[in-house]
Amino acid sequence: MGKKEVLLEVKNLEYSFDTYAGEVKAVRGVSFEVYKGEALAIVGESGCGKSVTMHAVMKLNPEPPGRLKGGKIIFDGKDITNYTDKEMQTIRGSEIGMIFQDPMTSLNPTMTIGKQIAEVILKHQDVAKAEAMKRAKEMLDIVGIPNADKRIHQYPHEFSGGMRQRAMIAIALALRPKLLIADEPTTALDVTIQAQILDLMKDLQKQFNTSIIIITHDLGVVADIADRVVVMYAGKIVERGTIDEIFYHPQHPYTWGLLRSVPRLDAKKKDRLVPIIGTPPDLFAPPIGCPFAARCDYAMKICYEAPPEETCESDTHNVTCWLKHPYAPKVTNPFEMGVAADE
């Protein structure tokens, strides 16, 4: 991986929504960084705050009800935490591109694809309309849409789901941003199309040397594209590390559960899929202790009373769990076992 330059650093981010029923503490102290040229995956159950975190970085959450309560966001050496909407406009689209989960609804139905790509170019660069359209066409070529000449004049409903997501990627990457945030880019697509879109993202990442943050539920996607993984639960990061560390030496009970609940490519016959029982806590009143305690097989008294601190497993591997405390009983890590048995 060579020498690592930090592109995005998020420090202790806290983000809430003020609703009529009270404050929803959606993100509660999240820290991570993204290095130049790498792909970071963020995984976790639905509603754990993945999208809110990324929208907070881009300042896309509607405010109010959204509210940044604390923390710092440093992008490319600039502290953008308190950027105004106007200042953010120069970053959005040109330095950070974003694609969303549902390609069917993410494109404006009454504007041609070409115009939607050209729009982002025209916004950030001083070029003529014709030039922007030419580059829009080139982008369609690059993302692998045939007949780009004709396609730029078509409307989203004339594109299939996969092609629309390609068009979204074309918009997001039109200005060669340093960072691409992809919020579940493949969830809404057929399996075969999913693989194509991921391949495309990997290709373009190499070609443009873009960093990628990919949000996903799909550990297969993680394994395919990511260099590092952040595991989130109930608005907090519970574990983060390189892909090998997370897949082969996971340390957090929630990560174990997550890994057991999805089929793995290297699955042995005896491995059964085990869903995680229960539901995540209510973010109106998050538990004072470890948010996972109510569902954790290893939960101890302390887990219900105080939140665990983050500990370092290695330079790249952090875990937030009381099991790492010296007083904690030794538990056998089911995955270390599994790997050991393999060897």
């Binding site: 896309l60 406009q89 970053i91 040109s94 404006n108 504007m111 729009e119 950030h124």
Partner: peptide, 21 residues
């Protein structure tokens, strides 16, 4: 709608989003 989020993510200003999208 999602496409308004897309427009915002492109860096368009509120006025541009209102008029164009």
């Amino acid at each position: 709608q999602d496409y308004i989020k897309t427009a915002k993510a492109k860096g368009l200003s509120s006025t541009e989003i209102i008029w164009r999208h």
